[in-house]
């Protein structure tokens, strides 16, 4: 599981410069897809798609994580990746706001935020939203493909 070692590399790269950290808010608006609550996995990869780490998991039952196929393939379903950053699934039409204290070095360094989504009895949607983490994208409403209407990343 090569991707699992990547976060360690990032840690060593970032920790010396860790002076700079800011609360970052992720505002997610769901579409009215007419189904049960959606599971959402928020995770970061580098530009080549190699997994760095997870930011948030909406949905508490590990049994369903394999339907978040991008996240599952990257992590092998290792739930330790989302310990302490897991909350409830998000209903259709609802709004989810997550505020995380993130390292500044995450921005403008070629990293990309992915949101995988899945709804019971409906299709799995890996990469429902893909947002390059750049200063230019901050505060922009980035459209989702299926269950996510939009995600806004703001500082």
């Amino acid at each position: 599981m090569k991707p699992l070692y990547a976060p360690l590399a990032l840690t060593t790269a970032l920790v010396p410069a860790m002076a700079a950290a800011t609360p970052v808010t992720f505002t997610t608006q769901m579409t009215n897809y007419g189904g049960d609550g959606a599971y959402l996995a928020y995770y970061v990869t580098d530009a080549s798609g190699a997994y760095l780490g997870s930011l948030w998991m909406a949905g508490g039952k590990a049994k369903y994580y394999q339907h978040l196929s991008g996240w599952y393939a990257a992590t092998g379903g290792n739930t330790a990746q989302v310990d302490g950053i897991t909350g409830a699934s998000v209903g259709a039409g609802r709004n989810l706001t997550i505020t995380l204290d993130l390292q500044d070095a995450l921005f403008d360094a070629g990293y990309v935020l992915h949101v995988d989504s899945s709804v019971e009895k409906m299709s799995d949607q890996p990469n429902d939203v893909v947002i390059p983490l750049t200063s230019a994208n901050l505060g922009q409403k980035m459209p989702g493909k299926r269950y996510v209407q939009s995600v806004t990343v703001s500082k």
Binding site: M1, G60, Y65, G76, G77, N78, G84, I85
Partner: peptide
């Protein structure tokens, strides 16, 4: 090769 995939994660 994967581990820990059936145990539900700790909540935030």
């Amino acid at each position: 090769g994967a581990t820990n995939c059936a145990q539900s994660p700790a909540a935030a």
